[in-house]
Amino acid sequence: MNVQFLNPFLLAASEVLKKEIGAEPTRGELTLQKSALTTDDVTVLIHLVGQVYGVVMYGMPIETSLNFVSRILGQEFTEFDSLAQSGVAELGNVISGAATVKFSQAGYQSNISPPMVIIGKNVQVSTLDFPRIVVPLETAYGNLMVHLALKEAAPGSNSAPEEFVKLAVSRA
């Protein structure tokens, strides 16, 4: 994976965490993993399509997600209910959205999918032939693991909607 895709995410994550949670995140050690991700309690998964494509995951323990959501929504959460799930998903959504804006400023157009939330520890998530860069962001409210499995689309195979070519489908 191209390391230039990493910084927009880290910058976006730092900005969003600072603004929404009031945390000053510090970056932990970066690792590259080829095996499947083993989930933590909560994983927000968002796909990217376009000139940069792949998947981004934000993993965290349940306490961290409750801390984050309590800060974002300004009320105490003790249970990971549907409102808390939306809050955490929205956090991932906002970070990824901000990162794609930075991509676009750098000349890479990409779009993000709606977020989904995986709840449950020790499930394997395989990104297949996409290696993953893993960056822990440490805050006073807990750690957020950012997993990036992204690729750059080959020139000419840009899947941006306006270049969508209608394919002929033969019907038997």
């Binding site: 499947a36 989930t39 998964l45 796909h47 990217l48 399509v49 376009g50 494509y53 792949g54 998947v55 549907s82 799930q85 939306s86 998903a89 779009n111 999918s113 709606p114 977020p115 989904m116 939330v117 995986i118 709840i119 449950g120 520890k121 020790n122 499930v123 394997q124 998530v125 395989s126 990104t127 297949l128 996409f130 690729k151 899947s159 941006a160 909607p161 969508f164 209608k166 394919l167 489908v169």
Partner: peptide, 29 residues
């Protein structure tokens, strides 16, 4: 492709594979 023929142009992401029973996935609203 069929959606595009019906006038809905969409792009798909690469697949992600989840292995393991019993986790729950929320598609929110």
């Amino acid at each position: 492709m069929k959606l595009s023929e019906a006038g809905f142009e969409t792009t798909i992401s690469p697949p992600t594979l989840l292995l393991g029973k019993g986790a729950s996935i929320s598609t929110l609203d």
